[in-house]
Design a protein around this nucleic acid. Structure first.
Length: 697
RNA sequence: GGACGAUUAGCUCAGUUGGCUAGAGCGUUACAUUGACAUUGUAAAGGUCACAGGUUCAAGUCCUGUAUCGUCCACCA
């Protein structure tokens, strides 16, 4: 044994061996209790970051449960990440001076497919670097034909049961990226803009968006507002920039009399609140901005102008006309932006597919209440419940080519829709040939919402029955809404069971100052670089050690170094025992009884206590505490105290003392194995044993 | 505006049902060491446990309030 543990010489070989021996391959074994985790599928478009490294928690659970005698499955899959991947690819194209519009749908799809295929391997290799005990024989991809088939069936079932509908509603649309998003994908950003007070018939009203005035169909005031009460229900005439027009005045409680002038222009086609007001009062919609981000023919001479220049022009013209009362330039408000390109999202009316969420969310709440699904750490239970209470209908249509194309077809003669899992030969509505498939693809989250059951279903009924519902879903608390809640809704809908018995949430990885890591801040730590320098065990331990369950982790290179030192400590304790075992056999000394029987007794008792506590922590998902416990024991009790006490005897060849030390040490290696799999496996082999992964705790 | 979390050593954080001199990692200081490990050991310095009340024999831990920070959600015409 070297005096230093060198992970660089060890990890790759060991992982290869685990793979070759098929250690991670799970199969149905009715004699054993199943334990299954579905890996949150990484996006197949980039490389691994520290968020992925947090899946170490899953590896810990898998390895621990395996050592506790269960049949463990950790199923690996990758996500096509629709809009996200297409966006990454478009940036790629842009560098070559091209855009998505230069290619036909099929060609673009193919190009992205190849790009993704390359990246998949990259990600997979990086997952191996972390030492993850993933079942590589069951690898899935969200666009596998077998998965797509299930996704189609789910969509059709939802449709048949009235839980999917098509409607022309306001959606968040990015005119730059050319696609819509669900409400969850909107990123709100605080901005300082101008608030314009303009004359509007008999009113003065305040708006941040004067350019949308061509789409106004009403003015709204608070029903109890004495200033304006007399106008409610009346039609007013407004002298506009492109001629006079008439709108009705409505009374609506959504209007805050204290804000601005207490009177609001209602533009149902371009504002979510106004859309709601319009619904309540049966107001017409008038769309004046197109999906290209330009004003349309209804804007008269302003047609063709982009939103921002239209606003400047309209403001200038209103001022010229004397209709601008005042401009408050330091108005701070929040606008929805595109998480991809950061441009302001445009609320636009568009026909899309929506999932009726309420009935599904109610079922999910029941699962939580009945403890069919346990939420850990406990504090996230409230948050998940609140999320389920406030879910609005989910827009699942995306205008990108990279994704699972929606299997909906429009009958042209009847102008209505039918869903078909197979490519239809004829129209299922009129039996004719005149029908076309929806151009849109599913929101990525629609397929990932089905991940736990869809992946297992493709492995056959027996495997599904054995491993489903899965034991634990372990993921970041940041995607509680986008993913966890939706998995519960769709999972229960399709299988009538919770998709996972326990949800275990981990926190975000931050820098040492508690700041989020981001490229622009330059504080990003690359997990692979850390592994190269200090080994996977050190990185893994650094992510777990000294953290609160579900709390954020402040990671620094220093912390990884600290854990590297711990790993080296583990190694050197082994080295000490190994060296003295060899010396002993050479000298064949036979002083078998230790003079330190009290110390040995103490060691045995302390170890028993330690192991009991360890099992308790591990079974209650307190992994950080379990690691802390073993860390403390190995370093500050076993090495600093017991070895020091027994050192002289051991060096002089006392068999009893050495034997007892060795026994306790090997047991501790097993306890450490879920956390630091490589070094423990390596030492196990040094002691002429097979594989620690196959041992029982 | 609502919910949740945080506030403990210079820095990053543990401290599970209230119970002995409040802990870890990194950093600092002094000393030690050629045979497990300097990726080490021994020792030390450093905390009115955010603040103010309350419950209790006993509060970092429970309750109430205040302040500051963070996260998520909602609204902002």
């Amino acid at each position: 044994m070297d005096s230093k543990y060198q992970p660089q010489l060890v990890e790759e070989k060991i992982y290869k061996e685990w793979e070759e021996k098929d250690f991670f391959k799970a199969s149905v074994n009715t004699k054993k209790e199943p334990f299954s985790i579905i890996l949150p599928p990484p996006n197949a478009n980039g490389s691994l970051h520290l968020g992925h490294a947090m899946f170490t928690y899953e590896d810990i659970m898998i390895r621990f449960n395996k050592m506790m005698g269960k049949e463990t499955l950790w199923l690996l899959g990758l996500d096509h990440a629709g809009t996200e991947t297409q966006f990454v690819f478009e940036k790629h194209l842009k560098k070559q001076g091209k855009s998505r519009y230069d290619y036909k749908r099929e060609d673009l799809y193919k190009m992205i497919w190849d790009y993704v295929a390359e990246n998949k391997n990259n990600i997979k290799n990086q997952l191996k670097r972390l030492g993850f005990a993933l079942d590589w024989s069951k690898e899935k991809f969200t666009m596998d034909p077998a998965i797509v088939k299930i996704v189609y069936k789910t969509f059709k079932d939802l449709f048949d049961q009235g839980l999917v509908y098509r409607a022309n509603k306001l959606i968040n649309y990015c005119t730059n990226c050319g696609t819509s998003f669900s409400d969850l994908e909107v990123v709100y950003v605080e901005r300082t803009d101008s608030l314009y007070y303009m004359k509007y018939g008999p009113f003065t009203l305040a708006t941040t968006r004067p350019e949308t005035k061509f789409g106004d169909t009403a003015v709204a005031v608070h029903p109890d507002d004495k200033r304006y009460k007399k106008w409610i229900g009346k039609e007013i005439e407004v002298d506009g920039l492109i001629g006079k027009f008439k709108v009705i005045v409505v009374g609506d409680r959504a209007v805050d009399p204290k804000f601005g002038t207490g009177a609001v222009k209602v533009t149902p086609a371009h504002d979510f609140n106004d859309y709601e007001i319009a619904k309540r009062h049966n107001l017409p919609m008038k769309q004046v901005i197109g999906f290209d981000g330009k004003l349309n023919e209804l804007a008269g001479k302003y047609q063709g102008l982009r939103i921002f220049s239209a606003r400047q022009q309209v403001v200038a013209d209103l001022q010229a006309k004397g209709h601008m009362v005042k401009i408050k330039e330091d108005y701070v408000h929040r606008v929805g932006t595109c998480y991809r390109c950061r441009k302001v999202l445009e609320p636009l009316p568009k026909e899309q597919w929506f999932i009726k969420v309420k009935p599904l969310a109610d079922k999910s709440k029941e699962l939580i209440e009945k403890k069919e699904t346990e939420v850990l750490p406990k504090r996230f239970k409230k948050r998940l419940t609140a999320i389920l209470d406030n879910f609005i209908d989910w827009n699942i249509s995306r205008q990108v080519v990279w994704g699972i194309r929606i299997p909906a077809y429009r009958c042209k003669s009847k102008n209505s829709w039918f869903i078909s899992e197979e490519s239809p030969k004829k129209c299922q509505i009129c039996d004719g040939a005149d029908f076309e498939q929806d151009e849109d693809t599913f929101d990525t989250w629609f397929s990932s919402a089905q991940w736990p059951f869809a992946t297992l279903m493709t492995e056959g009924q027996e495997t599904f029955d054995y491993f489903y519902p899965t034991s634990v879903m372990e993921t970041g608390h940041d995607i509680l809404r986008a993913w966890v809640a939706r998995m519960m809704m769709i999972g229960y809908f399709s299988t009538k069971k919770t998709p996972f018995k326990t949800v275990f949430l981990h926190g975000m990885v931050h820098d040492p100052k508690g700041q989020k890591m981001s490229k622009s801040k330059g504080n990003v730590i690359d997990p692979i670089l850390m592994i190269d320098k200090y080994g996977a065990d050190a990185l893994r331990a650094a992510l777990i050690f000294g953290t609160k369950e579900g709390g954020d982790v402040a990671l620094s290179e220093q912390k990884v170094i600290g854990m590297r030192n711990f790993v080296n400590k583990i190694w050197n304790v082994g080295r000490f025992i190994k060296m003295n075992s060899q010396v002993k056999s050479q000298k064949s000394k036979v002083k078998s009884e230790s003079k330190n029987s009290e110390v040995l007794q103490e060691l045995e008792e302390e170890f028993k206590k330690e192991k009991k506590q360890y099992i308790k922590y591990m079974n209650s998902y307190q992994f950080s505490k379990a690691l802390g416990l073993v860390y403390e024991f190995i370093w500050h009790r076993f090495a600093d105290y017991y070895i020091e006490q027994l050192k002289d005897e051991v060096i002089n060849g006392n068999i009893e003392a050495l034997g007892d030390l060795k026994e306790v040490y090997l047991e501790n290696l097993k306890m450490l194995h879920p956390f630091t799999p490589f070094v423990t496996e390596k030492i196990w082999k040094v002691f002429n044993k097979e594989s620690i992964f196959q041992e029982q705790l």
